[in-house]
């Protein structure tokens, strides 16, 4: 676009640094103005045009009711703490199981071949089934064995379902990290007389784990959202609580409240993951 590429006229003849700086500044100001203008135009269009839609009044009342928002927010926030708690005990378990599965798939000792097979089967199966199905099968199936309290708790088996599924993905992430450590690092360790096991533990893993931190951050964000799936087997966490309110008040605003609460956590976390990823890309170049 000529509008963006043009910073105005410059003096004829040899240019000074001041001339060049001034030109660059004009160019920058112009693109800032254009970006601001176009954003404002879009916002105004939304604010003005959407309320002109015939059903807007009804939608506004059932989805964006200020009254309902204020009324349900504190309870929903408290219900969200249950999501956070489930997340907090699942995340470390996922890290441990995921790493163990990744290491299983890297085993070279023939006697331990069954472990390798198990690792491959595990990741194939749990990456291949929708999370909600695993939640149903484990969450209803295992307590259905007639286990006594507290072993029939949906918290335990629901969490297990999340751990099983997410470990499969996290294992693949760890494995890609392990494979990204250059063979020359392994060779350097082996040439010192280190065993395969020590080479993995002291040289490969510390580098691999660092490299996959951003990718695992993204998994954590997805996990925080998927905790809501446990509502289908019982726990009254935020999604379930919002459903209760919806029925009670005949209003959908509680779902919007829940969405806002999730965003308050996930947007900063996503930004942080992006920042880590960008920093890593800078370090490698």
């Amino acid at each position: 676009m000529a509008l963006l590429e043009n910073g105005g006229a410059v003096p004829a003849g040899p240019l000074t640094k001041a001339d060049r700086d001034a030109y660059a500044r004009r160019l920058r100001n112009r693109s800032l103005a254009v970006a601001g203008g176009s954003t404002a135009a879009v916002l105004i269009a939304i604010v003005v045009l959407v309320p002109l839609a015939p059903g807007w009044e009804a939608v506004r009342r059932s989805f964006f009711s200020g009254e309902v928002f204020v009324e349900t927010f504190p309870t929903l926030l408290r219900a969200f703490m249950l999501d956070v708690a489930i997340f907090l005990w699942c995340a470390p378990a996922i890290a441990v199981v995921g790493l163990a599965i990744a290491l299983c798939r890297d085993v070279r000792n023939p006697a331990l071949y069954p472990l390798r097979l198990f690792g491959a089967l595990y990741t194939d199966i749990f990456r291949g089934i929708p999370v909600i199905l695993v939640v149903y099968l484990v969450g209803f199936g295992i307590p259905g064995l007639g286990l006594p309290r507290p072993w029939n708790s949906p918290y335990i088996w629901g969490s297990l379902a999340l751990i099983l599924t997410y470990s499969a993905y996290v294992a693949e992430i760890f494995r890609s990290g392990i494979e990204s450590v250059h063979q020359s690092q392994r060779n350097a360790a082996l040439s010192l007389g280190l065993s395969d096991r020590d080479t993995m533990r002291y040289v490969v893993l510390p580098q691999a784990i660092r490299r996959v931190v951003p990718a695992n951050m993204n998994m954590l964000i997805a996990l925080q959202k998927d905790v809501a799936l446990l509502s289908f087997i019982g726990p009254v966490e935020i999604f379930r609580q919002a459903g209760v309110y919806k029925s009670l008040l005949a209003n959908f605003t509680p779902y919007v409240v829940a969405a806002c609460i999730f965003l308050a956590i996930t947007i900063p976390a996503t930004r942080y993951a992006d920042y880590l990823m960008a920093r890593q890309a800078r370090e490698r170049s």
């Binding site: 040439s191 002291y202 040289v203």
Partner: peptide, 27 residues
Amino acid sequence: IGIVFQSFNLFPHMTAAENVMLGPRRV
């Protein structure tokens, strides 16, 4: 048998001292 490589291959997550001590510590 000690070997030194063209591209150094130091362990980037360890200090120089840790690099040097890893072999004797583990072996």
